[in-house]
Design a protein around this nucleic acid. Structure first.
Lengths: 359, 359
DNA sequence: CGTTAGCACTCTCGTGTTGAGAGTGCCAGC
DNA sequence: GCTGGCACTCTCAACACGAGAGTGCTAACG
């Protein structure tokens, strides 16, 4: 059984034919016959195409669901397609504008932006949109505030420099007057802004040890509140949008598959793990079929890109769908959304106006 | 075609048989045959049961999917069953404890509690759990706070007396120093706490008109911020949990139905409308089959109960599932969860300790 | 030597048929 | 009023069958 060759060994004609097979399969979701390829372009007859397709199958780029059905692209074929034969269609101006209207120049907190991004991904690609929010320990503190709710219950609001807002209700040993809460939050904001929650946590521990003896009442309270309020519960959030769109896709004809699908989406931790593999490298990454646990069992693909502020990658966003998908449109879309979201987050941070865009 | 009779006219034997049909149908999801009923109890033969079942069909309590299949209960049968022949099984101690551990004595904001309630509903009933959050205009203000984020962007945090927390990023005409924000939030909290957002809005408008002329800078800013921060966007939220559980149910064997199902859940506004019909009357309400737009088209049922603090109903919670469901267990469960959630919200408000429960 | 036309072969899919099984409705007898 | 028996109906799974689609192979052609 010969291995899949590297694409160098495919003749231009082979490549043309493989490309045509992939494109028509993406379009119709049905095995592609030699006849239909022959009809498409080339001055070649179906028989010739058949020979080529037999070769491509031998090399691992095509497969038949059963003898005498048409042929279907393998994961290897998609990889090759994406890597070297696809022509990325740039995102149409209309969609660009639509995305920018919804993400940039909108006064909203970062969580809201992430939700919007997820929704946009789903809406514009007709796939499942997924956005992973930043790990909490990584976020950089911008401000903390404490609001008394009732008795010893206090609402702690943490604002990150990238616009994420975290609410947490905490309970203290004793009731603390409103004015002191204000003082404490001012103190914390002044002294810790600009550091990551992880760092702050560490520094607090050190403070506690060092100044244990001569701690005054206020400092003790401050540390208590900060410990409780800034504690990160670790898990990264993930927003999934548009799962019901999957039901329209022909590859999910039976309920059992649908079920496995939804189970897979319910397992957020695994989703985050897979998506996070895409954070390195910067650009758009594509996982197809056997590439990952998630995609292999369902013959699905993931197209994902990191987003972040400046150099720091914060999280990942992308889409999940059947391996047969319109990569030429979707890859640029994911790329563009990653960039736009990054810029929108940066705007929130800097407090800039909607920056002018060339049109 | 004779109408469905009121249950007075059913003989005790008829009722027993109907009940048996309903119970076995709930258990097996398959049309119930006369033979299986005969085998169950009664010293009666299948033929006799058949006669009775024919009567019950004529009266509208049973129906056959096709000639010579078993029989299936109608919505009327379920109504009758719930109203007068069901024996509500009280919620097992273990589940009670589980629910209380998760809802009461937990320091968390109300939104979090609602999410937990929705999840518990779904988990314990194996149906779809639904919780409608209170209309924002109805909530009673407890405290407001403003936190500067960047430039002219300000985070406004609204805390309701029942523990709901609303974050909103607003943008002001000009930059406002942190101290003044504190003063403004103190002023608003002191003067408006205890009123509903709707009332406050009204009062603000009146203030603006009355004092237009001699408004000082600070008051103007206060009103501006309050207007923006307390504006309610009207819509009630709804949390849905456990939709994927539906996929295991035999009544959703084909993808088309699943799809309609999910579409129905996506239409949050309609869901809220239907759920809110249950807010009146206090107790648990059950909508079966033709009772509502949602349930009729899918042959689904809704079991819902209001929750709230004191007299004021705040929202609704309940489950949605196939009409064939275990009402004897689910109705008490929904009832209990409604009460427990109400108590948990009241606790948050009063700031009480976890109140002792008899065990 | 690459390309092509032709043909036999294979596999799927929709349709029609058939028989078994389950359940009912009805009737006659107890 | 209840029950056993029997004919009837409907579903469902299995099977066969033919049409259609697509392939693989081979021989001929430029």
């Amino acid at each position: 059984m010969p291995d899949a060759r590297d694409y160098g060994s495919l003749s231009p004609r082979d490549r043309e034919i493989l490309k045509d097979v992939i494109l028509t399969y993406i379009l119709n979701a049905e095995p592609v016959s030699s006849r239909s390829v022959a009809k498409h372009n080339f001055g070649l007859s179906a028989a010739t195409i058949r020979n080529v397709m037999a070769d491509l199958e031998e090399w691992g780029y095509l497969m038949q669901p059963h003898t005498s059905a048409g042929r279907v692209p393998t994961a290897a074929a998609y990889h090759l397609f994406i890597q070297s034969m696809m022509e990325a269609r740039s995102v149409p101006a209309k969609e660009r504008r639509y995305i920018q209207e919804n993400l940039q120049g909108v006064t909203a907190d970062a969580d809201h932006l992430l939700g919007t991004a997820s929704h946009l991904l789903s809406e514009l690609s007709s796939q499942v949109g997924v956005v992973v929010s930043p790990a909490i320990g990584e976020t950089v503190l911008k401000a903390v505030d404490f609001i008394p709710i009732a008795g010893r219950k206090i609402l702690c609001v943490v604002v990150s420099s990238t616009g994420f807002i975290d609410n947490k209700v905490i309970e203290t040993e004793e009731e603390i007057p409103r004015e002191e809460l204000t003082r404490i939050s001012n103190y914390l904001t002044a002294n810790f802004a600009g550091q990551t929650l992880g760092d702050i946590r560490e520094r607090l521990v050190r403070m506690m040890v060092e100044e244990k003896a001569q701690m005054d009442r206020m400092l003790a309270r401050t540390i208590e509140l900060a410990q409780a309020g800034l504690a990160s519960d670790g898990a990264q959030g993930v927003m999934v949008d548009g799962t019901s769109l999957l039901l329209a896709k022909p590859e999910l004809a039976d309920v059992q598959r649908v079920r496995r699908m939804f189970d897979a989406f319910a397992d957020k931790a695994r989703l985050v793990r897979i998506l996070n593999r895409c954070i390195q490298g910067g650009g758009v990454r594509v996982l197809i079929g056997e590439d990952s646990e998630l995609t292999s069992e369902l013959e699905f693909s993931v197209v994902a890109a990191p987003y972040g502020v400046g150099q720091r990658p914060l999280g990942t966003l992308g889409i999940v769908g059947p391996s047969r998908m319109d990569y030429e449109t979707i890859i640029p879309l994911v790329h563009f959304l990653g960039e736009t979201l990054s810029r929108a987050l940066a705007d929130t941070f800097s407090g800039d106006e909607r920056r002018p865009e060339r049109r």
